[in-house]
Nucleic acid binder design. Structure first.
Lengths: 199, 199
DNA sequence: CACTTTTCCTTGACACTGTCAAGCGGCCTT
DNA sequence: AAGGCCGCTTGACAGTGTCAAGGAAAAGTG
């Protein structure tokens, strides 16, 4: 209502759902986890505070959608790193782990949201399930060459995932030294030297 | 005000600060992370909603104190497991990792609180720093036999910590299979076979 | 013992959160 | 062009953390 020339629907070009997700990503990046609020999200997207309810199932639904978007970005980063690395199993493995860590470090609040405990309690959306599965597939494919004959693939995948996810979360939480980590990513990934190539 | 015989100071025997921390632990165990509220805590301890402000620096202060208590329990569990295990480096290492995982599985909400991102942003209390350091010492001592000559101890410590912490958080978050994990703790700990004993 | 001071808690208010019910306005359909 | 639906707004509610002010009881002081 600043001027009469203002367009009545100038909130977001096209889809409001998209605008709300983007607003959420912006708030998350700018103000951290506690800065992401349903009302702030709506305000940033240029709509009233109750508008999001027509596109998401309340705040949990919005967080779900943002997390799903996060997993897409996450998979993109890892795929890009894998593509840029030498096409050799061990180099690829290290590459996606570095991508994993980079994403966590560059998007701490989003990463935190993605791995919140919520999703295990209240069921996650199908969209989140799909994008999460896509990210997992990137990891699983890279781990495949290290799955020994007759071994359950999930074991190597879980070993690698646990290692890099643990390191990333510990660094984010600030438990590993004040500013820089006690051990670098590559130091930690040295533990993967224990993995043997199949065949 | 149910009966006139009610004692005016029946809130908590002795120290209110202790009562509030215990109330917080109870709420956390019963209702999960979102069930822990400053006001509910005060109500459970039998005092008014503003009483906690005189013992803690707001909600962050209360969470800090609860997390500190959590790290004490955490260290206790790992020490007990280590004491019960054969006094051999590799057995001890596996033992504290199992203790680590047990604690996380048995106290998911508390574990989640302890490793929240908050502590890296706003400075943690000295008490939390000390109890966190004590828990870390248990881990570091157990890792010591695997630190090769001339190697920085923090490397092995971070490798072990990242692995078990990553596994624990992934299981808690429900990403590893629906109810039971794809790979068991001992499966994941197999990666530690890559560690060599010093000397 | 009387009086002050200090300590600890209560009461009440405020801004902010998520959620719901009701209503309005423009767009599409027919 | 009239009817109807979809998307958004407005307003209210309970619940949250935090702050200011006050009060009651214990402790200190002559």
């Amino acid at each position: 209502m600043t001027t009469s020339l203002e367009k009545p629907r100038a909130n977001t070009q096209g889809d409001l759902r998209e605008g709300l997700i983007n607003a959420g990503l912006t708030l998350l990046a700018r103000d951290g986890t506690s800065g992401l609020t349903l009302r702030k999200c709506a305000a940033l997207a240029g709509v009233s505070h109750a508008a999001p309810a027509h596109h998401f199932d309340g705040l949990p639904g919005l967080l779900d959608a943002i997390a799903a978007r996060g997993f897409e970005m996450f998979a993109d980063v890892m795929e890009a790193k894998a593509a840029a690395a030498p096409q050799e199993p061990r180099a690829r493995l290290e590459a996606i782990c570095l991508g994993y860590f980079d994403f966590a470090r560059d998007n701490p609040a989003l990463y935190d949201l993605m791995f919140r405990q919520i999703w295990s309690l209240a069921g996650a959306s199908e969209e989140l399930g799909r994008s999460g599965a896509r990210a997992y597939t990137v990891l699983a494919d890279t781990c495949a060459p290290f799955v020994l004959r007759g071994q359950e693939p999930g074991v190597v995948e879980t070993q690698v995932w646990s290692l890099i996810h643990g390191y990333a979360t510990l660094v984010l939480v600030g438990k590993l030294g004040r500013n820089r980590a006690i051990a670098s990513v590559t130091d930690v990934l040295g533990l993967l030297g224990g993995l043997a190539l199949a065949d």
